[in-house]
């Protein structure tokens, strides 16, 4: 049975935003730290490091999850998507990101990467999500700046714009 020793680093490979990445991690390394310090993808933020704030939320095999409550060795072979994977091109924002900009869905931006990942997945998997459903998804995120009103506004605007796109 494969046993990864605490004293060494081990190869971890997975798919990050569609491209293969790999690096070395001790068993105790959190996915959030692996992304930020080994891969160098610092879009994912770290607030509380025990699952409460939601800043570290990334998509793991299609579902939003906490990178700080996941070990890097647990996601070997997985599909990971982070805030860096949302924009269609380096010089273009996604519809959701665009709406966040227009509706002031962020101030300091610390909570934003996690919130964008959650909302991106929600609007993709449940395009007709009701307002309470959007609120429920957002309840897994703390924002100390906006008071959430502008985040809701941005989310609803994005939902509408994305809906029009698929109708057309």
């Amino acid at each position: 049975m494969p046993r990864l020793s605490a004293d060494c680093r081990h190869m971890v490979s997975f798919t990050l935003n569609g491209a293969p990445v790999s690096g070395e991690a001790e068993p105790r390394m959190l996915l959030s730290d692996f992304l930020r310090y080994v891969v160098g993808a610092t879009g994912t933020h770290v607030g509380c490091e025990h699952g409460l704030c939601g800043a570290c939320t990334v998509e793991i095999d299609g579902q939003p999850g906490r990178a700080c409550l996941t070990l890097a060795v647990q996601v070997r072979g997985a599909q990971i998507r982070t805030v860096e994977g949302l924009a269609p091109a380096p010089d273009r924002l996604s519809v959701l990101q665009e709406c966040f900009r227009e509706h002031h869905g962020l101030q300091c931006g610390f909570c934003t990467p996690g919130i964008l990942v959650t909302l991106d997945a929600l609007l993709r998997d449940n395009p007709a999500a009701s307002e309470p459903e959007i609120r429920e998804a957002l309840a897994g995120h703390l924002c100390r700046c906006t008071g959430y009103v502008s985040i809701m506004r941005a989310a609803l605007a994005a939902q509408q714009r994305l809906g029009k796109k698929t109708d057309a």
């Binding site: 049975m1 046993r3 990864l4 605490a6 068993p27 105790r28 060795v73």
Partner: peptide, 11 residues
């Protein structure tokens, strides 16, 4: 706020 060291076994 990081875990202490442990071995990891994937059964």
């Amino acid at each position: 706020m990081k875990p202490a060291r442990f071995d990891y076994v994937a059964a």
